[in-house]
Write a protein that binds this DNA or RNA. Structure first.
Lengths: 344, 344
DNA sequence: CGCTGTCATGTTAGCGCTAACATAGTTCTA
DNA sequence: TAGAACTATGTTAGCGCTAACATGACAGCG
């Protein structure tokens, strides 16, 4: 009990920022009224509200959202966890999420797992620690501990990209069916020998699902479904290498079904450099419906996946849930569309 | 004073999550010791630390980072504010930032201004409200109020993409010089009539700076520097439209200097569809050094900007500052490189 | 042996805000 | 005109954590 001296009282590193209390003092109200004027203005008299807002400007108040979040046990964060930022597909989903959430005053907390579900688990822990309002993850595969966390966190959990046994909310498309769809198209076009080319199918397992669908259709038609797996994730360069590898390993191939448009476009451009005639000498198909494919000559046959829409719909469902409305349809199939170009 | 009944005492929505106090109880220590075991393990006895970590696992503790942040007035957020997620350029900068920060346990708080500096201002307020550790913005242009906030917030502020009169830290490249560089290249190649094609130069003002450099060189050589401005931001489609507009407005044009690679690649692909010979009938140049340009035939002449490196270097400088080290060189020019393809 | 220094841990007091309850004034209703 | 219902504002008690200070045990030293 040594400090009777009030000037030597216990001091925290008081940030110099003005607090709500000071705003309240400046407006001549209590701090709860100032709080209400900012957060639930309809519960405060018009006149009072004006005085508070004036005071806010006068003292240069910036709300301490951390304190507000602790007191209310709510934040306005949405955790978004994707496996990669190198892939345009995830970016476009993020764009859809971001546009919808930011319009409602939510912020995106972005995490990147690098296709590692252990890192996903760590990110989920961190984001839960920030009391995020909801979590969005790309895909349905998680570590058991992570599933557990997500299941018991009592917040909306949205799994996007693919459909299946989801934890809670689910917006995506049926990748197996997309693979079947393209395989059928290739058969209809009369191609007899088709190779599927993917990249790192252990990581990009959705491309693996598409291959499963592809193989299913091919085998039902009595054909083989050879697979070539590249060791670098989708890129124009990898696609070029894929074309070379197919021509070497299966010289009589009539069509290549690429796991995505980056690979397919890379192959198309490489074929052009080689003077290869597409589709006469070899047909090429992709997946995603990136803009690039539609600007090539020949235009790329591909499957359009509605990525930004997927993000937007996911965000809307989450917002509905956060507004306390029950979400009836927890699973939402955004579908896809076969875009037939001249490359097949 | 009506509630003497202890069972009816004032209740907060106590989240069911275990708290540090429960961990401490389970480990038989005080909560501050548990806190130290997690945050500054070197200040706790080996034995005790082990007991605490065990207890953490046993009760399934997830630290409440909001509370920690309020108590310590520090968060591990880095605010990153970009004008668009539709542009690959910003994505790659974000990737560089993200990889570096996430490795050090910092999270990215992502904001998108949609090229609107008023929205930027609002985002800066929000992120400051979250006690972010540092802020990264794309570009040097802000509203006066926003400059003011950034200048007085007492946190590292990093402006990336371009160089100039920065508020604090600055990593980028000299866009005017890049414009000059390409203009000189076109002159050296002997093209006499060159048009610059940009998109929304009021928003993408860095493309405007490149045009300034371009015009400077052209005028110094006694040539005109006509400009065509498209009304949609960079895309393959806009580039195709740009080519058409140049051929209509300036039929004798020998070279087009596009503001970026998306436009240039769109024009190249469109020219190919039209049967136009590049560069004999018309030469095409871009800016950014996107992978696509190097896979086209002819390869696109462009300027390589080290985008991921920019993000990485920005992150490293901020981390150095956050570690308490003085940053000596507050401005860092990452430079650029002229990539000469066959399109000029 | 008393003094100082170091280590490990504990006590106390907030961080800045909002939920829950309280209160006073006003309007509506039977 | 009593009292119910509503409006506007205030008082109090935390949210879960950590900074600052306090304490006690023990080692080193002249």
């Amino acid at each position: 009990m040594s400090n009777q001296d009030p000037s030597r009282t216990r001091r925290r590193r008081g940030s110099t920022q003005p607090t709500l209390k000071e705003v309240a003092a400046a407006a001549g109200v209590s701090s709860i009224t100032a709080s209400r004027a900012l957060n639930t203005p309809e519960r405060v008299n018009e006149e009072t509200r004006k005085r508070v807002l004036e005071a806010v400007d006068r003292v240069g108040y910036v709300p301490n959202l951390v304190a507000g979040s602790l007191a209310s046990a709510r934040s306005r964060f949405i955790a978004v966890i994707v496996p990669s930022l190198a892939n345009a597909v995830f970016i476009e989903v993020i764009r859809g999420l971001q546009a919808t959430f930011e319009a409602q005053g939510y912020q995106i907390l972005l995490g990147n797992t690098d296709y590692d579900i252990e890192r996903e688990h760590r990110l989920v822990r961190t984001f839960l620690g920030w009391s995020c309002s909801a979590l969005v993850t790309a895909g349905l595969r998680h570590t058991p501990a992570c599933r557990d966390l997500l299941e018991h966190c009592d917040k909306p959990v949205m799994e996007v990209m693919e459909l299946g046994e989801a934890l809670d909310l689910n917006v995506g498309l049926d990748h197996r069916e997309a693979g079947r769809c393209m395989a059928r198209h290739l058969l209809e076009r009369g191609y007899r020998r088709t190779v599927y080319v993917g990249a790192c199918l252990d990581k990009d397992y959705r491309a693996g699902l598409r291959f499963d669908g592809h193989r299913e259709v091919m085998e039902a038609d009595g054909r083989e479904a050879p697979l070539i797996e590249l060791d670098r994730l989708g890129s124009l360069e990898a696609g070029a290498a894929g074309l070379d590898r197919v021509r070497e390993a299966y010289p009589d191939t009539e069509a290549i079904h690429f796991a995505n448009d980056d690979l397919a476009a890379g192959a198309l451009l490489h074929g052009f450099r080689l003077g290869l005639k597409v589709p006469d000498e070899i047909a090429i198909a992709g997946f995603n419906g990136l803009a690039l494919g539609q600007h090539l000559t020949p235009r790329l046959t591909t499957i359009q996946s509605p990525r930004e829409t997927m993000g937007r719909q996911a965000a809307e469902q989450i917002l509905r849930r956060l507004d306390g409305k029950r979400v009836t349809r927890r699973q939402c199939n955004v579908g896809f569309e076969l875009l037939v170009g001249e490359s097949t």
